[in-house]
């Protein structure tokens, strides 16, 4: 956000932080393939050697030494909404520059709304590779314990979503 000049409008999308964790883990575990091919950092390789599924990593958080280090080693998993939106005070100061916030869970509907605001006719591709979708053979479910362990790690992410709601964004 700090790269956007004050007074210029911007758009972004958000999703449920737990879903984002799962998607991020699986994306990096396959090195972003097939759409991308971004090699692991050494710390990511170590994390994936130890934890092969998002649930395995999340279940280990707070229970196994090294699990938090693995969590913080994986790109997308370790990134936060605040990496883009700076901090609450900064975001509040820029909230009038937010043209729209799209929700990944209703992306088609929100994208259509954005296009209407922008006055353009555009559609989202249905190609799974173009959408960078998680292939069907990847595990996307979390155990209840995994969800519970993730909550403290994602607290700031939920704070951001709550802030958006409070601003009607």
């Amino acid at each position: 956000m700090s790269d956007v000049p004050v007074g210029e409008q911007f758009v972004f999308a958000v999703r449920d932080p737990i879903e984002r964790f799962v998607s991020g883990f699986n994306s990096r575990s396959r090195k972003g393939r097939p759409r991308y091919d971004e090699q692991w950092l050494p710390r990511e390789a170590a994390a994936f050697a130890r934890y092969s599924t998002p649930s395995a990593l999340a279940e280990a958080l707070g229970r196994e030494e090294g699990a938090e280090k693995a969590y913080r080693s994986i790109r997308h998993v370790s990134s936060s909404y605040w990496d883009w939106l700076d901090d609450e005070q900064s975001f509040l100061a820029r909230s009038s520059d937010v043209l729209m916030v799209l929700r990944q869970g209703r992306l088609e509907e929100d994208f259509e709304r954005l296009c209407n605001v922008l006055g353009i006719a555009a559609t989202l591709t249905s190609d799974p590779v173009g959408r960078h979708e998680t292939p069907a053979n990847f595990k996307t479910t979390l155990t209840p314990a995994a969800v519970q362990n993730l909550r403290p790690f994602l607290a700031r992410e939920y704070d951001f979503l709550d802030l958006l709601e409070s601003l009607d964004l």
Partner: peptide
């Protein structure tokens, strides 16, 4: 109009 491409939120599509 700036698009903040936040990873794993549908930003690619």
């Amino acid at each position: 109009i700036h698009f903040l491409h936040i990873g794993k939120t549908g930003g690619t599509v």
